[in-house]
Amino acid sequence: MNVFRLTGDLSHLAAIIILLLKIWKTRSCAGISGKSQILFAVVFTSRYLDLLTSFISLYNTSMKVIYIGCAYATLYFVYMKFKATYDGNHDTFRVEFLLVPVGGLSFLVNHDFSPLEILWTFSIYLESVAILPQLFMISKTGEAETITTHYLFFLGLYRALYLFNWIWRFYFEGFFDMIAIVAGLVQTILYCDFFYLYITKVLKGKKLSLPA
């Protein structure tokens, strides 16, 4: 464990909690892409099946349980409890255009052709593009609630911090996982446009509104 991975995990946890609180406090999931939340739940489910087969540490297990629990709680909020506030008309990204290539690639490029390893690879590739429906929805509505931008900031920051974690681990432990690194780079690059808007607008107290 190093400072980048720890702060990355905490940033990820913060994002997940911020989203849950936003929906719970405002009793509304307006502006939230249910499709991205479905993809994140699929990412966690396919990646954390090893909860059933191996124990790494109390931290590892508890964080995985929290991530999975919050992901499904968010889905429950979006598609059941606060379903009336879900803006389906703007959440129209075709997720099959993500699932098919990612599914195919995870069979072609992986470290080991075993079920758990292919599922892990699938979750890594899927996570790198899972935010696209959410970013697409914001581009369609032309704006995002400030609390939603904080959610996106911490979510994007977490994988950026993981990139530093991988540099650290390569330098000090000689460990590197090319699949995770390339996917993590793609994931972080997808946030660059949002990071620019977040830093130049939201942090200056303005609302995030895209040139519609």
Binding site: S54, I56, M63, H111, D112, Y162, F175
Partner: peptide, 10 residues
């Protein structure tokens, strides 16, 4: 190639 290290990252 076999990825010997366990998946210790989240």
């Amino acid at each position: 190639e076999e990825n010997d290290l366990p998946k210790d990252e989240l």
